[in-house]
C-alpha cells in the first residue's frame, strides 16, 4: 500500500508546497534541497500559487495499474507561474479541448481510482482550466 511513501509527500501533493532557494530566489517543485540554479542549499518551504499554463499534453487510453477507471484521462506538463514545470493530469475539462498555453489552476483531487473499497485514498494536485476562463 506504500503508506509511508504517500504520507511523506502529503504537503507537496495536497497543496503544491515546494521550496525556495534563499540564495538565488529560484522556486523549486518538486522540492530537491539543492538548488539546481545556483547549487546552494534550498530547504525553505514555499507555497506555490497553483496558477500556470499547459506546456504540453496528451490523452492516456492505456492506463497503468490503478488508473484504469479514470481512463481516458489527459496528462500534461504544466508551467507554473513561479517557474517550475511539473507533470500532472488535467481535470474538469468537460467538453473543452486541452491546448498548449491554456491557463490552468491547481486543484486537489483523487490521483488514483477509488474503486478499491479497501485501499487508502491517494490525493494530489491536478490542474483544470481556470474557472474564470470557463464561465
Amino acid at each position: 500500500m506504500d503508506i509511508p511513501r504517500h504520507w511523506r509527500l502529503k504537503k507537496q501533493r495536497y497543496a503544491l508546497v515546494g521550496e525556495v532557494c534563499e540564495h538565488c530566489d529560484a522556486k523549486l517543485f518538486p522540492p530537491r534541497d539543492i538548488c539546481p540554479e545556483c547549487g546552494e542549499e534550498a530547504k525553505t518551504l514555499f507555497q506555490f500559487s497553483g496558477k500556470g499554463e499547459v506546456y504540453s499534453y496528451t490523452a492516456v487510453y492505456e492506463a497503468p495499474e490503478g488508473y484504469a477507471e479514470q481512463a481516458p484521462y489527459t496528462l500534461a506538463m504544466v508551467k507554473l507561474d513561479e517557474g517550475p514545470l511539473i507533470t500532472a493530469q488535467l481535470t474538469d475539462l468537460g467538453a473543452q479541448k486541452p491546448a498548449i498555453g491554456m491557463p490552468v489552476e491547481m486543484v486537489t483531487r483523487l490521483l488514483r481510482s477509488a474503486t478499491d473499497e479497501r485501499g487508502m485514498l491517494i490525493y494530489g494536485y491536478k490542474f483544470r482550466p481556470a474557472v474564470a476562463q470557463v464561465a
Binding site: 477507471e69 479514470q70 493530469q89 481535470t91 483531487r109 483523487l110 485514498l121 490525493y123
Partner: peptide
Amino acid sequence: PGLDEDVAT
C-alpha cells in the same frame, strides 16, 4: 462530481 472528486477534494 467528476471521477476524481469526493467530499474531501
